[in-house]
């Protein structure tokens, strides 16, 4: 059984936000009004989060693409009273929108703040209506939504490899954010397979897990930037 995971190389990431846009388009994530975004009601399954370190004049900023971490021990699923969220055998933290009652316990439990509540009925104006992805439902008002690691793509990949009569190979299933990354900073694959690219990168001395000390065991692993982490350059 595969255990899907993602590696994000922060040394390569240019914070161009292509992954954010790809995610919004792939998963029918609605845009909200600027005033509502200021109130923290923005919906973004994947956000590039900036972190300022030090103070003037020695100041530096790190930007970090932050999708759902798909933790092996997710705090969000423990608090769900209706089992609308859970973890699949392949390690994807899932959300069943039709079952969610919108209590927002999970939004508060997620230490990465990667769960969003639909405050309004989603609106897709003009051409956006025509650009909706038919494989992903438009979530109604009042449910919590989150990154599904493009689960529909996994289903499609499984379907086509079964039709071709071969096992799932590396690269058959990639989420939209990883596919679009122009800097090649995102990697995706099976962490269980020791030969896969992600499994090799996870063994790198630069690899770290965000907020690891919380014991959530995230399956999105970052590669730190800078030489101070003792990093040797990974071959592209």
């Amino acid at each position: 059984m595969a255990r899907w995971g993602m590696v994000i190389d922060l040394a390569k990431c240019t914070a161009c936000q292509a992954c954010v846009v790809a995610c919004q388009a792939e998963n029918n994530v609605p845009c909200v009004e600027p005033e509502e975004a200021e109130r923290g009601r923005i919906l973004s399954w994947l956000a590039v989060v900036a972190e300022v370190q030090g103070s003037y004049p020695r100041v530096s900023m790190t930007t970090r693409p932050l999708p759902c971490m798909h933790c092996d021990s997710p705090p969000c699923i423990r608090v769900c009273p209706v089992q609308a969220t859970g973890i699949t055998p392949e390690g994807i933290v899932r959300q069943t929108f039709a079952r969610c009652i919108g209590c927002r316990y999970c939004t508060n439990a997620c230490p990465y703040t990667r769960r969003m509540f639909n405050w309004y009925r989603p609106e897709f104006r003009g051409e956006l209506q025509l650009a909706l992805n038919p494989d992903v439902t438009v979530r109604p008002k009042g449910v919590v939504e989150k990154c599904t690691l493009c689960h529909h793509r996994l289903m499609q990949a499984k379907e086509s490899v079964r039709a071709e009569g071969r096992p799932l190979a590396e690269g058959d299933y990639v989420p939209a954010c990883v596919e679009i990354c122009p800097a090649g900073a995102m990697y995706f694959g099976d962490l269980e397979d020791p030969e896969s690219r992600v499994a090799q990168l996870v063994r790198s001395p630069r690899a770290f897990r965000y907020l690891e000390e919380l014991g959530t065991e995230p399956k999105v692993i970052f590669l730190s930037q800078g030489e101070w982490a003792g990093g040797k350059q990974e071959p592209r």
């Binding site: 055998p89 899932r94 079952r99 494989d135 689960h151 289903m155």
Partner: peptide, 8 residues
């Protein structure tokens, strides 16, 4: 019978 295999 995984939820998200049918619920999208």
């Amino acid at each position: 019978n995984d939820c998200n295999d049918c619920h999208r």
